[in-house]
Write a protein that binds this DNA or RNA. Structure first.
Lengths: 202, 202
DNA sequence: GTCTATAGTAAGATAGAC
DNA sequence: GTCTATCTTACTATAGAC
């Protein structure tokens, strides 16, 4: 009972913290606000997580893993064609981003501001460059650095969500039309990526 | 003479502030640090700019204008073809981004965190949707919402710079290879955009 | 496990001297 | 125009009671 309560409270604090960090960033989020929204005292947050910095680090690591756990099994599946991988990536990632639309901008910005949090991710290079996806891209179009296609694919997926705050503020389109466009992109991005992979080899 | 000194100091403070705000964001930048780097006292910063918030607002407005002053004359030029517009956009914007690589991530993040700063930009909708570029895209491919192409074009241009901190931290590629890739993209993006504009109309 | 109370620090802002 | 000194506030963190 005490244990269950403990797990509950600790987890509640973490999830509130995740929400606030993701929305407002590290510096604009205070332990006070986290405690208040979690309906506990400031001291308790530090009791469970020792410091604001440590709490943030835990959340960053979890978010990072969440971001990459989506794509890792897809890009390293040896039994799928390039087309199947792209289709699967687009579909899974857009679903994921619709659930957590603020995650990419938050992560990218915090990584920029505090590179120390990135110690774990040096493995990223090996993960990406040795992936099955990378090899298949290289095979399909040997004339162009495959990173270009990674940039293009990731950009097509992520960029609308990074622009979302601007779109909302400027009332460029409303939220329904935005979601409508994301649905269309599930169908269109694989076609576009295929087009540019097949593009004239100059 | 006193006037020249005034202009000098005021401007120096603003440029230091711009650098710090752009690198570390609003909340992580302190007036103390701005003053220190500008080699003046805290009081002087407030003397010239009244408050941190006001200084930030001025810099945001200038940065925003700088971002759009690049593209406005290009997308609204009635005497150029779609291909010429795209070529010109890609070339100018990548040059601009190589000079100010941190600007997009900074702007996008601050807009997300403080939407109040976006009052001026409701005109953005009219600017974009009524632009000559938008009409030409619609003409070229009437089957797909032209915003898709705007997303794709902007994403292809901006996304590598938004990813730059991750790339550096993860040592995915080094800075020379990055710049090399940006140069290649000046040539490649217009080709790719043309490909997806011509894509099968499903 | 959870709270109150408080120490210690750092921030934004301004009054007043030069 | 520029600085020193200071007020006020808000933050992180922890000691100690329950």
């Amino acid at each position: 009972m005490a244990l269950a309560k403990k797990e509950d409270t600790q987890n509640k604090i973490k999830e509130i913290a995740r929400k606030l960090f993701t929305r407002f960033g590290y510096s604009s989020t205070t332990i006070r606000e986290i405690a208040k929204e979690s309906q506990v005292n400031i001291a308790l947050v530090n009791y469970y997580f020792r410091s604001k910095d440590n709490l943030f680090r835990i959340i960053m690591e979890e978010s990072f893993e969440q971001l990459f756990i989506q794509i890792d099994p897809i890009i390293n599946n040896k039994n799928t064609t390039l087309e199947e991988k792209i289709q699967s990536l687009v579909s899974n990632y857009l679903d994921f981003l619709q659930k957590f639309p603020e995650l990419p901008l938050f992560m990218l910005n915090e990584i920029k501001n505090k590179p120390k949090h990135l110690v774990i991710k040096i493995s990223l290079k090996k993960k990406v460059s040795q992936s099955s996806l990378m090899h298949q891209i290289k095979e399909r179009n040997p004339y162009i650095n495959p990173l270009h296609f990674i940039f293009n694919l990731l950009g097509m997926l992520v960029f609308p969500f990074i622009m979302k705050p601007v779109i909302s503020s400027a009332k460029l389109i409303n939220i329904d039309d935005f979601n409508q466009m994301i649905s269309e992109r599930k169908r269109l991005i694989p076609i576009w990526i295929n087009d540019i992979l097949e593009s004239k080899k100059t």
